[in-house]
């Protein structure tokens, strides 16, 4: 075989490789973006357009569907409940998760590896398995159908992430910074508040927002554990079979958008949790 032939072969492989790569990227992007785009079109169209066929590919910027959504009885209360539960989840998961993350990154204690495993293990149990016993227990303690009770469950779901994100953030802050602060007149506490906290605050915010999104998106526990005080997800699920198409689209849109925006805002820290450097 001549050199030219060898070169041709390798150029061909490289070309087809690049094509495959491009195609995969386009496919994966479409996989994520197309449904969200349809959601957007249908939300921003009048109810009539939503229910007709074929559908337009360009949104009409008609707020009829969203108005209908806002006017639907119980919808705004559900939205309010969602926000309350998500805020509670956010606060509790940081208050519990951040100190655990700090301890994991700064102290050596027996059972550290096991502790890390156990934190992850809370995600190993399927929620349906836990939801029913929890419902019984909540009814016994009077926590059922309260925002706080649901936030407790969501906190359990969010804590592993809160611990892991803050763990990686604290680990990213050299211990020497704290030690320097100690030699410069700080106690362990003031070194934390004056040096570590300012450095870690953006990351803590990210982890809090992630907890918010976890709670915001959660359906199952919300549907099982609340009746009167439904969150938006549970409320939409409840009315899924009876509500008109445009209401579903509007509800879906209202659910997806904050989650999307938040996750986009904190993506850097989520990558950090998985150990991918993104700088």
């Amino acid at each position: 075989m001549t050199d030219a032939a060898v070169n041709d072969v390798s150029v061909d492989t490289r070309k087809s490789g690049r094509f495959l790569y491009g195609a995969s990227v386009v496919f994966l992007c479409a996989w994520v973006i197309v449904p969200i785009y349809f959601l957007l079109i249908n939300t921003l169209s009048s109810p009539e357009t939503v229910n007709s066929f074929p559908k337009p590919f360009i949104p009409e910027f008609d707020f009829g569907s969203l108005q209908f959504f806002a006017g639907f009885s119980g919808m705004l209360t559900a939205l309010k409940n969602s926000v309350i539960v998500a805020l509670l989840t956010m606060i509790m998961s940081i208050i519990i998760g951040a100190p655990a993350g700090y301890a994991l990154s700064r102290f050596d204690f027996p059972g550290k590896g096991l502790f890390r495993m156990l934190i992850l293990l809370t995600r190993a149990f399927p929620l349906p398995l836990l939801a029913l016993p929890l419902a019984v227990m909540f009814i016994q303690t009077g926590l059922d159908d309260t925002a706080f009770g649901l936030a407790l469950v969501h906190t359990t779901l969010a804590i592993p992430f809160a611990v892991l994100i803050t763990f990686s953030l604290f680990s990213g802050i050299p211990i020497e910074l704290e030690e320097a602060a100690w030699t410069l007149g700080c106690t362990r506490l003031t070194a934390f508040t004056k040096v570590v906290l300012p450095l870690i605050l953006p990351g803590i915010t990210a982890s809090a927002i992630f907890a918010f999104v976890i709670s915001w998106n959660e359906v199952f526990a919300a549907a099982v554990l609340t009746i009167e005080n439904r969150t938006l997800t549970a409320f939409l699920l409840q009315n899924l079979d009876t509500s008109p198409l445009h209401l579903k689209f509007a509800g879906g849109f209202i659910l997806v958008v904050p989650a999307l925006i938040f996750i986009f805002a904190v993506r850097k820290y989520l990558f950090a949790m998985w150990g991918i450097a993104n700088r």
Binding site: P174, E176, L177, E179, W182, L184, G185, V195, P198, L199
Partner: peptide, 30 residues
């Protein structure tokens, strides 16, 4: 005693200059 009560000051190998403070505030921290 804890480090702050020993009358010592330390210079670290990786400098440990606080990234969120200006040079002035770093030097004036203690």
């Amino acid at each position: 005693l804890s480090p702050k009560d020993r009358g010592i000051a330390m210079v670290f190998q990786n400098y440990a200059v606080f990234p969120h403070l200006t040079v002035f505030e770093n030097i004036g921290f203690g």
